[in-house]
Amino acid sequence: MYLKKIVLVVVFLGLIAGGAFSYMVYSAIFSPNTSFTNEQAFVFVPSDANFEEVANVLQPLLKDIDSFREVAQRKGYMDNVKGGKYALKKGMNNNEIINTLRSNNIPVKVSFNNQETLANLAGRIAVQIEADSLTLLSAFKDRKFLGDKNFAPDNALGMYIPNSYELFWNTSAADFRNRMHKEYTRFWNQDRKAKARTLGLAPAQVITLASIVHKETVKVSERPRVAGVYLNRLRKNMLLQADPTVIYALKLHSKDFDRVIKRVLYKDLELDSPYNTYKYAGLPPGPIAMPDISAVDAVLNPEAHDYLYFVADVQNFGFHKFAKTLAQHNRNKAQYVRWINAQNVNR
């Protein structure tokens, strides 16, 4: 009888211990373990992160980091960390958190436009994905890649079509560059290629000309007319004489792309640079900036006219006055010069 009581007590205590252990396990796995008050918190896990680095990132967001560690070990997450951007929702338990970190890498929107150089582009992208600007710039300038894709260092910027793209935060520099080439190929569909051929231009040349059009006017509605002027000049073997190319040449010569140049002077036109379209015929070696899609399509769909000249319209700011003859252009230009001198714009 005494032995029976002992057995019952032991069984009872075992049940209590087992229940307590089961409760602890259940709590560790299924009890809410977030400490933030917002509906969700984003976690960025570097591609080369180990578990301890992930734990350090998570610690401010969790009530109990030790229970998270226990569950992570049981589920094999400690040796299977994956980089990416993850969204943790308020009230998640450890099981849900680990499942999220395993398989719910969420994409980010990456956007860019108006960059003047590959270095500027690398800096813009580096604040949006994991890759740093130096690694990105190295990938952009990779000569083997450029040669394989029929690009050169001077026109490589033209491969990047400004837009918003969805990709993973932990996309590598090389993968980002490769994705942009796919987008470039998709952009240059049969219709656009056919229009470029009609103009006698390759896609890279269209983008170079579009960059000049983009810089000449911010008015989208005016871009097909400006494009028509430059195409008329190319057909007549005239110098393009585009001020934005001279400004680019000056910046390139001084290695200072932060420099602000509001006025092109006559002495600037003497700069010996393949980008100086007052000295060298045809298109420059590559784009002077990243043209937006409206500028590219303006070149592909130019306005048909006989204009050969244009100058800023001081009576309708943002737009230009167009002329068919040099005499008419000089009258328009004189009006502009009087106005800019009155503004004391010397540079």
Rank of each mutant, 00 (worst) to 15 (best):
R177S: 12
K215Q: 04
Y230S: 11
Y26G: 05
W169C: 05
M180R: 08
L8F: 10
F30D: 01
V299Q: 01
V127A: 11
D191T: 14
N56D: 09
L13K: 05
E183M: 08
N276M: 09
V7G: 07
Q241D: 07
A196V: 07
L101E: 01
K321A: 03
L240W: 01
L62R: 00
I16G: 12
A304W: 03
V299Y: 00
T208W: 09
F140T: 09
T208C: 12
N80S: 15
E222P: 00
R74I: 11
E70C: 08
E53S: 14
P291F: 06
A242H: 03
L252R: 04
G123A: 04
K255D: 14
F44G: 03
T171H: 04
R102Q: 13
V7I: 15
P107H: 07
R263E: 13
V11M: 13
R143L: 14
D66N: 13
F151H: 01
L199G: 08
V45G: 04
F51P: 01
V314W: 02
L146F: 13
L134N: 07
L157F: 04
S35T: 08
D148I: 10
R233I: 12
V57P: 05
W188K: 10
K85S: 13
T171G: 06
E53T: 15
G91Y: 08
L15I: 15
G18K: 05
L13Q: 04
H320E: 03
L300N: 02
L201T: 06
I106L: 14
P291S: 09
F36R: 03
F42M: 13
A72G: 02
V108D: 04
D191H: 11
E222G: 06
S221A: 14
A55T: 12
V246I: 13
V311L: 03
E303T: 14
R179A: 10
G200E: 07
P284H: 09
N104W: 02
L265C: 11
G19Q: 10
S138A: 15
A334D: 06
G147A: 13
Q328Y: 03
K251T: 09
L231A: 12
Q40N: 14
M180I: 08
S138N: 12
G158T: 09
G228T: 07
G200A: 10
A295T: 02
F319G: 02
A227H: 00
F68G: 00
E96K: 14
G228I: 03
T135G: 11
D292A: 08
L239M: 08
N237H: 12
A152I: 15
T135V: 08
R69F: 07
V296L: 11
Y275F: 13
P107E: 07
A156H: 06
N113A: 15
A122E: 05
M180V: 09
T185L: 14
A28E: 00
K149M: 07
P244F: 13
N150C: 02
W169T: 09
E130Q: 04
K262M: 11
P46A: 05
L240V: 11
V43D: 00
A55L: 14
A131K: 01
S211A: 11
F12H: 08
L58C: 08
N316H: 15
E70Y: 13
V54G: 02
S67W: 01
